[in-house]
Design a protein around this nucleic acid. Structure first.
Length: 574
RNA sequence: UGUCCUGUGGUGUAAUGGUAGCACAUCGGAUUCUGGUUCCGCUUGCGAGGGUUCGAAUCCUUCCAGGACAACCA
């Protein structure tokens, strides 16, 4: 009995220890019965751009914590700025969330659905003398705001009468005034230590149709006047966001309390902030990513070099690898810079167990097996995946002439070169052991062809194949192979932390070698029939590759997701 | 020089007053029909000082360092 209790106690301790700080807060709130013991989170993107891996971190938190504790998660489009938003982004956001494997069910919301309620709330604040219309320009208002160390000054319009404020705000929304000529401000405290309390602007005029509400509104609420209230309207209990909103939290709470009034003790949403995702050799700034797209420095939002979810998808990243990576880096309040090798490890790990093995030669050189009959061909059995117990096999043709990788041959090799060189044997993956007998060179001394002989008793699977041979090469049959275009992607930026470099424009820091196109690669013929867009393969001894959306049976296109680790290349660099 | 937040190996992250652990990276070695995978091992850490305590990464305090905040963006 005592032992049991100890075990139970330990289990609880361990469970708590495994939770990140947000999950612990949620667990504590649930245990304390806050908000009736409910858990409701929300993921609130503004539909003004494509989601990137930083958003994936938020999605995994918002949907993940709801999943973990049996709560629900709303998808709410924070569409309070018609100047920047569009349904194109809305659609891509929904697709990417689904791709990651999360679903909001029937809990799809839009801040624009609350425009009337928010307007009414603003009117009620005016009536209570807690909001006023300011006729000053943006510059004047900014000048009066003070600095973090010096208090602000009151606007000359701060003490306008309720009647005048009501009248002006109504007319602002009728379109009687130009954009920028008037704003509605909450009257709070121009001397507050928190800049967000110095009479924040809560409504501005935007005379542009909203993608959902059309011409109905001429005034639109600011983030601070929409977010907390939207959470409140939806019954959100935990409003989880990133660290830059920490200084907004007091205002969030201030306005929610104002809205809830006496009922705030029964239900009140709570904002919790975690660190955003920063990755080496890339950027998360939506503005800068947009610039790369607009200036054609990359080929669109889904360029495989982009940290966007559609880019990562096209690059060959799997949802599971992204989730695993996010799990690995964790959630804290420390603004970390995560090494991209963690992401690379996550996708290698996933693809190692799941990607089908094939042969592809990126830089082909012809090898003639001089003692193999010209009219003969064999279909060899190739393992699809040695990491899986019951993986299938597929056939690959072998014939007298094959291609191997140019750098798998050296006439005068360095030490520990376990590849093809005159007088030495190597094994052809899944095929015969062959011995190099010589090579042909052109006038400049470049090798144009290699000659070998094969040992007929050494086909894979036959008893004679058990001989120890140091090197194993990938290859394709010259007569049967297909041409392919291979896009070799590398890190987008040449420097570890492009955001930290204040001396250079970020565009100067791009990696000039982030894309290399190989047009004359040779791949085994099985791929021509079996490679569909987004399929993932391991090109043996090279790396992981994904069929591009541009690919067709006639013109195969593969994207390199990530290379295999290469300890030989690494050793050569030393 | 205001308010708030944050400092644990190279990077990221555990620890909930009780042996500083894990992952990635690095470097060795073993295995291997992928120089991959797998396996084994090494190196490297609590920002600094003071205090409370039998005992401090953890609590208090001072200092140091980094970051956020002054959009009619979210």
């Amino acid at each position: 009995m005592v032992e049991n209790m100890n075990e139970n106690h330990q289990e609880k301790e361990e469970k708590k220890a495994g939770l990140n700080f947000v999950q612990q807060i949620v667990a504590d709130d649930l245990k304390a019965g806050k908000n009736g013991g409910r858990l409701n989170t929300r993921f609130p993107p503004e539909p003004n751009g494509y989601l990137h891996i930083g958003h994936a971190k938020a999605i995994c938190m918002d949907f993940g914590v709801a999943e973990m504790f049996g709560g629900t998660c709303n998808l709410r489009f924070d569409d309070t700025n018609p100047a920047k938003e569009d349904t194109e982004y809305e659609q891509s956001i929904m697709r990417d969330i689904h791709w990651l494997g999360y679903d909001w069910g029937d809990r799809l919301y839009y801040a624009s659905d609350y425009f009337q309620k928010l307007y009414d709330f603003a009117v009620s604040l005016i009536k209570k003398g807690k909001a006023y219309v300011d006729d000053q320009s943006a510059e004047e208002i900014a000048a009066q705001k003070g600095t973090p160390t010096t208090p602000g000054q009151a606007s000359p319009y701060r003490e306008r009468s309720v009647a005048e404020n009501l009248d002006l705000f109504e007319r602002m929304n009728k379109g009687e005034f130009e954009e920028g000529s008037r704003v509605l401000r909450a009257k709070i405290d121009m001397a507050s230590d928190n800049m967000h309390f110095r009479d924040p602007i809560i409504y501005r005029i935007i005379k542009r149709p909203h993608w959902r509400t059309g011409e109905k509104w001429k005034v639109y609420p600011m983030y601070d006047f929409a977010h907390g209230q939207s959470d409140y309207f939806e019954g959100v209990t935990h409003s989880i966001c990133t660290l830059e909103f920490v200084p907004h939290r007091p205002l969030y709470e201030h306005l929610v309390k104002e809205l809830a009034g006496d009922t705030a003790s029964e239900y009140c949403p709570r904002q919790i902030e975690f660190n955003r995702l920063n990755l080496t050799y890339t950027l998360m700034s939506k503005r800068k990513l947009l610039q790369l797209v607009q200036e054609n420095l990359v080929n669109g939002w889904d360029d495989p070099r982009m940290p966007t979810l559609c880019g990562l998808r096209r690059r060959g990243y799997t949802p599971q690898s992204i989730k695993n990576f996010i799990q690995d880096i964790g959630y804290t309040k420390y603004e970390a810079l995560n090494d991209i090798s963690l992401l690379e490890h996550a996708i290698r790990e996933d693809l190692n167990t799941n990607a089908t093995r094939v042969c592809a030669v990126l830089d082909p050189i012809k090898v003639v097996i001089t003692n193999y009959p010209d009219d003969k061909e064999e279909m060899l059995e190739m393992d699809n995946n040695p990491e899986q117990e019951n993986a299938d096999t597929h056939k690959m043709p072998f014939s007298r002439e094959i291609y191997i990788e140019r750098n798998d041959f050296m006439e005068e090799p360095p030490k520990k070169f376990f590849r093809m060189t005159p007088g030495k044997e190597v094994r052809l993956k899944g095929g015969y052991i062959i011995m190099c007998t010589g090579c042909t060179k052109d006038a400049e001394g470049n090798v144009t062809e290699i000659q070998c002989t094969y040992d007929p008793d050494t086909l894979s699977g036959m008893p004679g194949s058990n001989r120890k041979v140091k090197g194993t090469l990938h290859w394709v049959s010259a007569r049967h192979c297909k041409d392919a275009e291979i896009r070799l992607y590398d890190r987008l930026f040449a420097v570890e932390n492009p955001s930290a470099d204040t001396e250079h424009d970020f565009r100067e820091l791009l990696n000039p070698d982030s894309l290399k196109v190989v047009n004359n690669a040779k791949v085994e013929p099985w791929l021509a029939e079996n490679a569909k867009a987004e399929d993932k393969f391991q090109f043996q001894r090279i790396g992981y590759f994904c069929v591009d959306t541009d690919s067709t049976a006639k013109h195969l296109v593969f994207n390199r997701t990530i290379g295999l680790k290469d300890s030989w290349a690494k050793a050569q660099k030393k």
